[in-house]
């Protein structure tokens, strides 16, 4: 087991009182496993991903990463955990607009303390492998949606994390581009045995992963 959710609940305050988004969600993920989380809009998929990745804290319950409670980590420990063990792919890419594709992809290595030169060399290799070699010097606003997402994938795995979280990575893409992005993610998952947790609406995409979890009304179905 690499990641375990134990009775996770998440409430959001609203003017009419707390709104429960997640209600006692529990499951675990093994190393190298790929898991999809599906469900209708507003079912709590992205909120669950945020809790699993330590981007948010649960109202109750906890997330364990190899027996360590992510939910109880201090901010500095969380940052250290994310920069060494975790990769992210967001639906709307979230690239730094002032950095080129190469610099965006190299960012996690630089944050880890590697030299900018070394990080750029490695980012160049990965982008080339993803078919982005010719576009690596371009800024995000000069790239298409698919190119931006492939850059985000390169950024997510450049530091070879143990788990990648992807929040609807194909949500903004056409079918063909979406397929190529998923192929890239699954390729990484299989090649370097990185666990993959992927939130999607797409049942076809979910079927390509090892296991599928469906969430409905804040609970696992």
């Amino acid at each position: 087991m690499i990641l375990k959710a134990e009775a996770l609940t998440k409430d959001f305050p609203t003017p009419s009182g707390p709104l429960r988004i997640l209600d006692g969600v529990s499951f675990s993920i093994d190393p190298g496993e790929s898991v999809s989380i599906t469900g209708p809009s507003g079912s709590g998929k992205s909120s669950l991903l945020g809790l699993l990745a330590g981007l948010d804290r649960p109202t109750s319950g906890r997330v364990l990463f190899k027996e360590t409670s992510v939910s109880e980590m201090e901010e500095t420990e969380l940052c250290a955990w994310r920069r060494t063990s975790v990769g992210f792919v967001f639906q709307n890419f979230e690239l730094v607009s002032s950095l080129t594709a190469l610099e965006n992809a190299a960012l996690p290595l630089e944050i880890l303390g590697r030299s900018a030169k070394e990080a750029a060399a490695r980012a160049g290799e990965i982008l080339a492998a993803l078919g982005m070699g010719a576009r690596s010097g371009h800024f995000p606003h000069e790239l298409s949606g698919g190119e931006q997402q492939r850059t985000a994938i390169a950024r997510a795995y450049i530091h070879e994390p143990e788990i990648i979280f992807a929040d609807e990575p194909t949500g903004s893409l056409d079918e063909e581009t979406a397929r190529s992005v998923v192929d890239s993610l699954l390729g990484i998952n299989r090649r370097i045995k990185t666990a993959l947790v992927l939130v999607t609406h797409n049942p076809e995409l979910a079927r390509q992963l090892d296991r599928s979890l469906t969430i409905h009304g804040g609970k696992l179905a």
Partner: peptide
């Protein structure tokens, strides 16, 4: 937020 998501301490 993005830098923090990538593990960069505040």
């Amino acid at each position: 937020a993005l830098f923090k998501a990538l593990g960069c301490p505040p």
